[in-house]
Simulated assay, not measured.
Amino acid sequence: MLKTVFFTICLFCLPSVFAKQSIIFINPGHADTNVTGPFWFEVSQLMRDAAKDFDLDLTIHYANRNHIEMKSLVAKALKAKPDMLILVDEKSVLTQQLLSLKHISTPIYFLLNRPSEQELKQLIDHGINIAGSVVPDNKQAGQLLADKLIEQTQHAANIFAINGDYTTHAALDREHGLEQSVQTHDNATITAKTVANWSTTQAYRQGLGYFSHQPSINIVWAANDAMAIGAIAALDELNKRKDVRVGAINWPLRVVAEKIDVTIGGHVTLGAFALVNIYDLLNKHATGPMHHEMAIFSQHNEQTLKLVEQIHSDNLAINFRVFSKAHENPLPFSVESLLLEATKSAL
């Protein structure tokens, strides 16, 4: 009887022992598909699946591409004091916000866009606990997409580059990868380039102008699939689609993928990888570097198409625990490993 009473008292006195570890993710995008595509929705879906596998309490807030709203959400999340806060440092706006605040005790993990090395040092010197980060190798993405498109062009490759923005590391690195590819191909030239803010509508409007005034364009390199679809709409309207190869970064759903000649993706999975790392960090399983840059990109194929369909149907069956350092034989986190795990159950 006394043992039972003592145990009951312990339960009330130490509730945190049995509480789930809490994670808040400030998603800079939308909760559903919109003019910038479904990428951020897909990131969240995979993260939810990984959180279930690790029994983590994951809360996701959406900034809807509004940096003012994103800052507000970050401030609220810091007051909630989760075990880990996941941030996407688009255009370095969050770095400046964090440096303006005092007494931040919550560990922070950066996903997909992280501060520069100098900015990270400033944050650490400011007393902020930077737990780690994971970003894709966006130069690899930009170069791989350009290489695949140029390979499909028998004559001179006159490229129209549509980038997402002027400032994020992801956009700048993708453009750098494009430039590296062009330097290695004697027949390739960047004939024109623009920024369409990741938007189908803006890419369509700009495409109409460029395709009308620069008829030599025969390749469209787009930094995401939404902008590629906008460019294709403009080509269709001008009756020029058959003369231009179009490529994009992101793995779209089949109905979109069938309209684009080349698609490169894989970085949509890195939110799940962040949760694997965070689980290991919180539970003292982590080994190796804090910060990761992943050469995760590969060309869209039938298997990855089915994987994206599973993400949208909320029917994903990947066991993300096999990537944790706590697993007896942890697998390397890669597209190949993810497809292998998915194949075991459904693909």
Rank of each mutant, 00 (worst) to 15 (best):
F110N: 01
L112S: 05
M70V: 00
K121C: 09
L99Q: 09
A75N: 09
S105G: 14
E119L: 02
L112V: 07
K81E: 08
L78N: 01
K81A: 07
N66D: 15
R65A: 12
L111M: 07
P82T: 01
K79H: 00
K81I: 01
L98M: 15
D83W: 00
A77P: 08
Q96F: 06
P107I: 13
Q118T: 05
N66Y: 14
L87Y: 01
A77T: 01
L120H: 00
D89N: 08
T106L: 05
L112E: 03
E119T: 02
P115K: 03
N66V: 12
S72M: 10
L112R: 01
H103L: 15
R65P: 02
I86D: 10
V93N: 07
D83R: 01
L120G: 00
P115F: 03
N66L: 13
K81P: 02
H103C: 11
V74D: 02
E117T: 03
M84L: 05
V74K: 01
M70S: 10
A77N: 00
D83P: 11
N66A: 12
K79I: 06
L99Y: 03
K91V: 07
Q96I: 06
L85F: 00
E119H: 03
K81L: 01
S100M: 13
R114T: 10
K91P: 03
E69A: 12
Q96C: 04
